[in-house]
Design a protein around this nucleic acid. Structure first.
Length: 494
RNA sequence: GGUUCCGUGGCCGAGUGGCUAGGCAAUGGUUUGCAAAACCAUGUACAGCGGUUCGAAUCCGCUCGGAACCUCCA
């Protein structure tokens, strides 16, 4: 059978070219995707979660189309300095010092936290999740190559990438971010400790550790640690090759992080690394990006429990995911309690309709063009992963499903099967929504109890004892159970 | 200051030259013992001002407002 990716080829907005391009993988039928993961020095906030949810959605769609995907998402556990003037303390080491813990205790704690959040939001684990400290050897090797190729220089035990030399000899530092070297140099401030560099735009590949720096490894140049940008180049090359398909990350990493990565890749192998560079946009709070350092952030666990002054209540992770998927990954998304409330209603309506669909009986013939709908859904997804458009199509189907109580409309057996399969597929497999899970035994007990209550109330209603019927309904509503009196009996939702 | 991007109806949010995106809210209706849910109907929305065009929310220019990056952040 022909794979779905042939029928619905993907078009991707490529940051490298600024154009929407057809996706043609390096190796037919396979996708290699690298995404810059978190620096594990504090709890991930909701903005971080948005980025990884966006890439998880793409990962899921690639797999759904039949691609064999290798998804690499790293954990930065060393080398990420407090500022990028290549000075300042390592983020992990600083936290370790403040909390009087081993750096690896910090790394472990926040890696676990990150995984918990990812699991809650239903993000699939990546194929490989490499760490910077686990790839010191590869990073040192890459630095050696870059030095041999003449693009880096040593200075006082540290090694810097020679940006000016790189660009003079045909490199195009600035290609991704649209920056010109002259602008960068004139725009740079004079910072302390820059005297080791030939030019302000140069960036560290290896830093000599100061005496108090606790995270350090031996190298040909000094006892020290790798520069932040290097880990991604080294690990993407190791696991995906010198030329692979997709490199993603948050918009804020476009410059300098990804710009530097490209330069390192070219300097060591002659290739830029990924063919398609993707950037997901920021999640804002009060119109400003969420950020750990400024404190303008909300944590996923606060959102799930409702324990934050900005929230009227807690929201389940699937609702949060739905909220994110209603916006395109490349747009700024503004967070608010109102927006979450609206998303929750929509999310529940969508899942409710999928439940209704599972109980629908086939008709003689169809009054809805399911195949056309399926095509439109795929076309939306393949058009730069347009989840909002997909969702609008899903709601078109929701409207149809909810109209099926009218006997003049319905679906043939084949169409019913197709719609059921695709609705479930798009909502759960691709968008990654998840039904509120409750344990089966509890559910069964509740169902039995509810059947009893509904039956007793039905008797009251038969006797036109509306007072009793209404009291039952009212009290159940207060307990969080909503009764719905339909033509074919009473049902309930939590 | 430099480099990008954005400004869509009460709110969120797609679209990017002609064809009502969608969700939430609101109003009216159908249904129902009453509700709820659902369905149907209802919005002269594209920051402002010019220009290009037969036609612009969509392209161009200017103005105003906001954001990201240029120092760490997804």
């Amino acid at each position: 059978m022909e794979p779905l990716y042939r029928k619905y080829p993907i078009f991707i907005e490529n940051s490298l070219t600024g154009k929407k391009e057809i996706f043609l993988p390096v190796s037919d039928g396979r996708v290699g995707m690298y995404v810059c993961g978190p620096t594990v020095y504090s709890d991930v906030h909701l903005g971080n979660a948005r980025t990884f949810t966006s890439y998880d959605f793409m990962f899921r769609y690639f797999k759904h189309l039949g691609y064999q995907v290798r998804y690499v998402r790293n954990i930065t556990d060393a080398g990420h300095l407090e500022n990028d003037a290549d000075e300042g303390e390592d983020k992990i080491a600083k936290k370790a010092r403040i909390e009087q813990l081993e750096p690896m205790e910090i790394v472990q704690r926040y890696t676990v936290d990150f995984h918990e959040v990812m699991e809650k939001i239903n993000a699939l684990p990546p194929s490989i999740e490499p760490t910077a400290t686990g790839h010191i050897v590869e990073q040192i090797q890459m630095i050696k190559t870059i030095i041999e190729n003449g693009w880096a220089y040593q200075s006082n035990g540290s090694v810097y990438f020679d940006v000016e030399n790189y660009n003079t000899k045909g490199g195009d530092y600035g290609v991704l971010s649209g920056r010109k070297l002259e602008d960068l140099q004139s725009g740079s401030r004079a910072l302390d400790g820059q005297e080791e560099k030939k030019n302000a735009a140069d960036f560290a590949l290896w830093k000599k550790a100061s005496p108090e720096h606790i995270m350090r490894w031996p190298s040909p140049w000094s006892e020290g640690f790798p520069g932040w940008h290097l880990e991604c180049s080294a690990m993407s090359t190791k696991y995906l090759g010198e030329q692979f398909d997709i490199h993603g990350g948050g918009m804020d990493l476009k410059f300098p992080h990804h710009e530097c990565e490209i330069a390192q890749n070219v300097a060591s192998s002659g290739h830029k690394g990924a063919k398609y560079w993707l950037h997901t946009n920021m999640l804002t709070l009060n119109g400003k990006r969420m950020s750990k350092s400024t404190g303008n952030a909300i944590l996923p666990k606060e959102l799930f429990t409702g324990q934050n002054p900005l929230l009227s209540k807690g929201f389940n992770p699937s609702t949060v995911r739905f909220f994110m998927m209603q916006a395109h990954y490349s747009s700024i998304l503004d967070f608010s309690d109102d927006a979450l409330m609206a998303a929750e209603k929509g999310h529940d309506k969508l899942l409710g309709a999928i439940e209704t669909l599972s109980k629908l009986q086939p008709s003689e013939s169809s009054t809805y063009n399911v195949q056309d709908w399926v095509d439109r859904c795929y076309i939306a997804l393949s058009d730069n992963f347009n989840s909002p458009i997909l969702i609008s199509h899903l709601f078109e189907a929701v409207k149809f499903i909810n109209s099926c109580t009218d006997l003049s409309i319905g679906l043939s057996k084949g169409d019913l099967q197709l719609l059921t399969e695709k609705m479930n597929c798009f909502a759960f497999d691709v968008l990654g929504l998840r039904k509120e899970e409750s344990s089966d035994s509890h559910k069964e007990a509740l169902n039995k109890a509810m059947d009893l209550v509904i039956e007793l109330r039905a008797k009251a209603r038969d006797n036109k004892d509306w007072d009793t019927a209404d009291i039952i309904r009212k009290q159940l509503t207060e307990a969080g159970i909503q009764l719905k009196d339909g033509a074919d009996g009473t049902s309930y939702t939590l």
